[in-house]
């Protein structure tokens, strides 16, 4: 296994050990994956479609349960967490989805406010059901992602890049210690992609937050992240500081297909 320069447990935001996930239909999506992520690091997770990137992130947020090994997030073993304990971890972990996950009929402000649902009690429907202090903060977060003027617009009237920024503002409402982003720019055009990635990077550095982000554009990942981890057919095959890597060596992840590669490995589309 590739040795990791970040071996120690101390100050790790995420610590994954021998993690595996086999879906009920038999697919082995993760196979004995181990790595630690220290606080404040920006990590790019790369790999072919079907290599297990989304599965890994979803396990870290308790949306999937591992079938083997452990995943500690912010000091909590998420594989065994349930109910209130799981909600408590999720409250401190932001998740940015490829498909944004906005409620289209709700205003941007209300979507951002939904980021506080882990802290406020009771059901909420409509901006006015949230406390004023939270609304003020939501406006600030929207301003931070450059969309304050769209606060009262319906989310489904925005462009893809704008929607993703609203989704990021929603995560910011959680004051997340860890931000997980699953292909946050995969459905965006190059310009919006650059904007969104820049935003995530800025947030990470300004507030020194830990970020794990899956990406398909390798050259973007190289210039943007501190560290690159590569998955192939559910196995960890690359783990290096971004500065030590060249584009060619990263492309190896996409080229080498071992014996246990997924059956229908798609053609490589170079990013």
């Amino acid at each position: 296994m590739t040795s990791s320069p970040w071996g120690s447990d101390s100050g790790a935001a995420v610590s994954v050990a021998s993690l595996s996930k086999r879906f009920p239909n038999g697919t082995l999506a993760l196979d004995d994956v181990s790595f630690d992520v220290p606080e404040g690091q920006v990590l790019a997770l790369i790999g072919l479609s079907g290599s297990g990137k989304s599965t890994l992130l979803r396990i870290l947020n308790g949306l999937h349960r591992p079938t083997g090994g452990t995943a500690r997030v912010l000091g909590v073993e998420v594989g065994g967490a349930r109910g209130a304990q799981l909600r408590d971890v999720r409250r401190h972990v932001g998740f940015v989805f490829q498909q944004f996950g906005l409620v289209g009929r709700a205003t941007c402000m209300e979507n951002v406010l939904m980021g506080t649902l882990g802290r406020v009690r009771g059901p909420r429907l409509g901006v006015r059901t949230y406390p004023v202090a939270l609304r003020r903060e939501a406006l600030d977060q929207l301003e931070r992602v450059g969309l304050a003027s769209a606060a009262f617009q319906r989310a489904d009237t925005l462009s893809g890049g704008q929607m993703q920024r609203v989704a990021i503002a929603r995560s910011l409402m959680q004051h997340p210690a860890l931000l997980l982003a699953d292909e946050p720019v995969a459905s965006l055009d190059p310009e919006s992609s650059a904007q969104v990635l820049e935003l995530i990077g800025r947030i990470a550095r300004e507030d020194s937050r830990t970020v794990i982000c899956t990406l398909h554009q390798v050259e973007l990942a190289l210039g943007w992240s501190d560290r690159i981890v590569g998955l192939q057919a559910g196995r960890l095959v690359l783990d290096r500081p971004a500065t030590e890597l060249s584009l060619d060596s990263v492309m190896e992840v996409y080229r080498r297909t071992g014996g246990e590669a997924p059956v229908e490995t798609p053609q490589l589309q170079t990013a």
Binding site: L63, R90, R91, G101, M114, G118, R124, S171, M173
Partner: peptide, 15 residues
């Protein structure tokens, strides 16, 4: 997807 996103911030099922 919105349901998953809201679940992922730690909201309860009912919320």
């Amino acid at each position: 997807t919105p349901k998953e996103a809201v679940l992922s911030v730690g909201a309860r099922r009912f919320q």
